[in-house]
Design a protein around this nucleic acid. Structure first.
Lengths: 338, 338
DNA sequence: TGCAACTATCGAAGCGTTTCGATTGCGTTT
DNA sequence: AAACGCAATCGAAACGCTTCGATAGTTGCA
């Protein structure tokens, strides 16, 4: 395997010249640079990663800690993992995957062995063990998600409160005054993943501000309870004219099936918005207005912030990504009283 | 950050003694070893990863190339990624995640910069670009899945042919002579992921060997075509008494719903086996006999083989993991003619 | 003409390990 | 008593890069 010495020899220069030519950190004559790049090409030279880490100040690797448990929704999880990896590669960073059973010890290990320059934290719980470790390590880190105590941390996430408020405002603009919300399964709220409660709370407070009547149900992941959840909403809120879905793909599909089965047309009989889903919603029949949860948005920003931190300390912050709204025609004014 | 020099100073020995004490590669007096481990503890010393890579012969990192595309079924994909990461950690290896848009160039990059000791290849297509690159690089690599040309490669996978044969033999043992198969969507077969055809072919040849009548249908991922697929099976094979499912969770769920809706009882009216699914099938009503696709089985073995290759070349091979069978009571003798 | 200010290049000192030969001191064997 | 073998330890040479501080050679300007 060719080393920088070989390149220097072939190009007829010293190794420091090669290093500077490749890094661009000092000016090098065009003719020399050309000889060097030719030599690199010819030898198939690639700088040795270990040597670089040792001599340089950075490793060009980020750790990604992405716990996976029973309640995790695989497609969304996957989307975030991939988005982080892609964003990192765009800045010449690689991603090292930490496993959940090594969550805190793995962080310590990779940080104190200087294997990584920083840490990206996914699927953040309100009370998250990783927060304490990261504070203590002082390693550059970005949380995608927001723990309860954000003191000293850099966090990025979709603005779920604003997303909920956006859903409410679109519906009230259309004239709705009775709006239901179908959320995730109770386990998701119980376990402490932080965005479902944030959406729910944003929903309730925006509704309260508008003086809108609300109802909320949390179906289990599997079949029959979706039906029960819908029944519960109609029981609590008999005049419900609009529905916000903040739940998994299978549940949303089930809801649409049940509505169809009951002869309820969207949007004539019921307006529906799909909120903060990380999957495509345009295959539903009819297609639904959507406030998408775009993994790439948060992850790209997270990687940028991580890179800034590698360069030097930055101010702690919580950055909320504003929600977008995609119209697909699933909202109409409420039907006149039947 | 404490270095090996600090440890040596505190313990009152030379750095080589520290290194040998920690690696165990030469004998060290118990008293000395104790002083060293105390110093390590006290200073919170962790060997620097970069220095280790440079001086030693290995990096203790594997690259994981796991392409993700439209046809990918996220939960299964995730299960394999996690299983690889866990198996690697059990051998003190970390996992570097390569993205699909850098599939071949990423392999070249991490291998020739000596960032990784080896490569684990997931979701192998029959004709897979990564095969050529890996042959050319000569880096230790293990394929989880089997490309068409396995010349010189080390591959591990569930024995899908044997799994199909096992399903057939369980059903023929119970007296079935007309067996249907519901497979993945046509796109999966077209794109070249290699296990669906292997299962299908194993199914047909085992059935032929037993003189059993068969039918095969490939529903699209979404709703209505599952119904169509079942209709197709009953049309092609009016006397069908048993069904093998080799498809995604949502499709299996849909099949069970449709059977229930049509008043077909499992197993009295139809025997059903779920084959090579990486999800839990015991929540179906009724629970289904299952030939599970256990990610950990293949991934553990793959990591072992990768580690053997890091130590020195091993013979190329295709290792097939034998299928298991979980009885749950979804098989009965065929119903007498109705 | 002389000197300052550049530009382009080089040499050498690290970075923190691993590992290969010593070297030392003891107990055993002849 | 000389010779040997072994266990425990040390010193120093890599490993391949980055980067700091020279050094020559050029140019510009007083």
């Amino acid at each position: 395997m060719a080393s920088i010495h070989d390149v220097a020899r072939v190009a007829g220069v010293s190794i420091s010249t090669v290093s500077y030519a490749l890094s661009g950190k000092r000016s090098i004559a065009d003719s020399t640079r050309l000889r060097i790049t030719n030599a690199v090409e010819q030898l198939g030279y690639r700088p040795n990663a270990g040597a670089r880490m040792l001599a340089g100040t950075r490793t060009n690797i980020f750790a990604l800690t992405a716990p996976f448990h029973a309640e995790t929704y695989a497609p969304a999880h996957m989307a975030f993992v991939l988005a982080v990896a892609q964003a990192a590669r765009a800045h010449d960073y690689d991603v090292l995957l930490l496993t959940q059973d090594e969550a805190t010890s793995g962080l310590r290990r990779v940080a104190s062995s200087r294997l990584v320059d920083g840490i990206i934290v996914l699927d953040v719980a309100a009370e998250d063990d990783r927060v304490g470790v990261i504070r203590e390590l002082g390693t550059p880190a970005v949380f995608i998600g927001i723990p309860r105590d954000t003191e000293g941390l850099v966090c990025v996430d979709l603005d779920f409160e604003a997303a909920a408020a956006l859903a409410i405002s679109r519906l009230t603009d259309a004239g709705h005054r009775s709006i239901g919300l179908i959320g995730h399964s109770p386990g998701v709220y119980a376990r402490g993943s932080n965005f479902p409660p944030r959406f729910r709370d944003g929903f309730f407070s925006a509704a309260a501000a508008e003086g809108v009547a609300t109802a909320f149900a949390m179906p289990e992941r599997d079949g029959p309870s979706v039906r029960a959840a819908l029944d519960e909403l109609y029981r609590t809120l008999p005049g419900m004219t609009a529905l916000v879905l903040h739940c998994e793909e299978t549940v949303q599909a089930a809801v649409m099936d049940i509505l169809r089965e009951r002869g309820l047309r969207v949007p004539q009989d019921l307006s529906v918005i799909s909120a903060c889903a990380s999957f495509e919603t345009d295959h539903f029949e009819p297609a639904l207005d959507t406030i998408p949860l775009v993994a790439a948005d948060s992850c790209t920003r997270a990687v940028e912030l991580a890179i800034e931190q590698v360069a030097g300390p930055i101010a702690p912050r919580v950055e909320l990504v504003p929600p977008r709204y995609l119209e697909r025609g699933s909202i109409a004014p409420p039907a006149p009283l039947r």
